[in-house]
Amino acid sequence: MNGRPDAAADAWNGVLVAFSGIVKTYGMGDATVHALRGIDLVIRRGEFLAVMGPSGSGKSTCMNILGCLDTPTSGTYLFQGIDVGALSREGRALLRRHRLGFVFQGFNLLNQSSALENVELPLIYRGLQPRERRRKAREALEAVGLLDRQSHTPGELSGGQQQRVAIARAMVIEPALLLADEPTGNLDSGSSREIMELLTAFNEDRGITIVMVTHDGNMAAYANRTIHFLDGRIDSEVQNGDEPT
């Protein structure tokens, strides 16, 4: 596998992700929690999708399933035509390794490692040689404008800078899908705008598909499309510029 969409994916008419009837329940009997109650969703390549909704509406569960960190209880999830539900734990890990990038609200960088080492990390698991790894990681850091901070540890960087390092780490593998879970949730408005401009640039210039969870309508405005979750269902869907349906 490699980071680029293959022939099979192209045959899918630009559809990257297809959810059909995705249900996720936790627990059993009376204690059963219905996190997702049947989601149908198609994400096309190159799309920038914002996901909104109150807490407990199922958007995090949806992100976990999208990110192949979790599997649906029922329904089908096709990623580039691959049935993710049929993959083993290892198969899903390999999919994450080669196709998916993650950006978290809490940055989730390794605190003892430098910015460069954090960005190198996914490449280590892809088995790249040190020289090649370092070159790619530097490129990624340069793309987020932090090449001069490459040897700083996360503790020595501001929140916005940390999140940019996290974006560089997600982008270094040239993912087919970048998942951002409230990437600006811990940042001030200035840093938030920087992060959003960075994400938009990656989406527009490199055609990276992005799915972003946010509580902030201003941030959602950067996306092409916004979906609202409510009680485990998609409540509404808005194309950028359109009025809510």
Partner: peptide, 10 residues
Amino acid sequence: GIRLAIGALE
């Protein structure tokens, strides 16, 4: 968790 999320295998 971070390592597993970004593609470390068991």
